[in-house]
Simulated scan of single mutants.
Amino acid sequence: MSSSRDDIPMNRKDMDESEEPFLPIPVQSRGEKQHPLPLIAAVVSFYFIISLSVVFLNKIILSGASDFPFALFVTWYQLVVALGLLLVWASLGKSYKMFSIIPPYEFNIAIAKKVAPLTFVYVGMLVLNNLCLKYVEVTFYQVARSLSINFTILFTFVILGKKTSPAALVACGIVFMGFLIGSYGELNFSWAGVVYGVGSSAFVALYGIYVQKTLAAVDNNQWKLLHYNTTLAIIFLSPLLILSGELSEIIETSEVIYTSYFWILMTITGVTGFGINIAMFLQVKYTSALTNTISGTAKSCVQTVLAAMIFKNDISALNGLGILLALVGSGYYGWVRYQERISK
């Protein structure tokens, strides 16, 4: 969460392919101030810890130790936690300078109507992301959601009429090959997980485009956009949660909701989800665009290795090749985009 990428706000996904997207993250402009190496290391480490925590905690809740397969409710609750933290942080910002990055909470109906189309995409992105994580192994999660780059290129051309460089198209091809090979080689393959992953990738790409169209409605302030997005997402998800039958099913069949462990875990996951916004803000502020690109790709590699160790996921040779190609393609795409930015 910060300022500009060639004066066009970018979505957080342009920097990282893995964790749950919350806020548009612009990249610093050229002439960035050089910061001490220990500070940069601390910021990147904080981003790694928070980002990995979001993925692993969601996996534990949805299909791990908690075995709570209600993705709509999980998403809704985490948004409620995020909104609560936004309100508290904004309130503290009135008295303490260190919290002043988030402006006072606001919700104007006229502005909310302009933000609503973006929020529909936002909700679809979050829900499909959690549904994908529910059905696939964390080692395959990166592959299942790797096509966001491909959809970004497609939608940028179809909706905005902008062409993509040949180098970026090569990166797109590498990612697509990784997706195909990784899917074919996945030992615990799930059509549902792949479909949700592809859907999530499409919504992530759409989200980046709609952010560009919507930021002007909130004075180009990404924190204000988070106010509206989070509030509207809770409003939109509430009737869907009831109509889907998840709420009644949870009350009737789930025993885990009566344990303090479950609610502590859910709340911690909501806090880490909100923490992604702070981690991204700090990483963009105190590092460079190149560091952001490298950090996102490196985090995906660490995520895959840790998933194999923690969840004991078996990885076939083809699956491993697919994961490698998806990571290489994503990293190469990030490098190409970085080179294109600094050459302008």
Rank of each mutant, 00 (worst) to 15 (best):
S2D: 08
S4W: 08
R5T: 03
D6S: 11
D7L: 05
R12P: 01
K13F: 13
M15R: 04
S18A: 10
E20Y: 03
P21K: 03
F22A: 06
P26K: 05
E32C: 00
Q34R: 11
L37S: 06
P38T: 07
L39G: 03
A41L: 11
V43T: 12
V43C: 01
V44M: 13
V44Q: 09
I50V: 15
I50W: 05
S51L: 14
L52D: 04
V54K: 11
L57V: 09
F68G: 05
A71Y: 07
T75D: 09
W76T: 07
S91Q: 06
K94V: 02
M98G: 01
I102D: 01
E106Q: 15
K114V: 06
P117L: 03
F120K: 13
V121M: 09
V123G: 07
G124Y: 13
G124H: 11
L126N: 06
L128S: 14
C132K: 04
K134F: 14
Y141T: 09
Q142D: 01
A144M: 06
R145P: 03
I149D: 03
F151C: 13
F155D: 04
T156P: 05
L160D: 15
G161D: 07
K163A: 00
T164W: 04
P166L: 01
A167D: 12
A167I: 07
F176K: 02
F179Q: 10
G182P: 02
G185A: 08
E186R: 12
E186H: 13
E186T: 09
N188A: 15
F189K: 13
S190P: 10
G193H: 02
Y196V: 04
A202S: 08
F203G: 03
V211D: 10
A216V: 12
A216E: 10
A217S: 15
D219H: 12
D219G: 11
N220T: 00
Q222L: 01
H227P: 11
T230V: 06
L241D: 01
E249H: 06
I250Y: 03
E252A: 02
E252I: 07
F262N: 07
W263D: 07
T267K: 08
V271N: 02
F274C: 00
N277D: 02
A279M: 06
Y286S: 00
T293D: 02
S295R: 01
A298K: 11
K299P: 00
S300T: 14
T304I: 12
L306I: 10
L324V: 12
L325M: 14
A326K: 09
Y333T: 04
V336I: 09
R337P: 11
Y338F: 14
Y338H: 15
S343M: 04
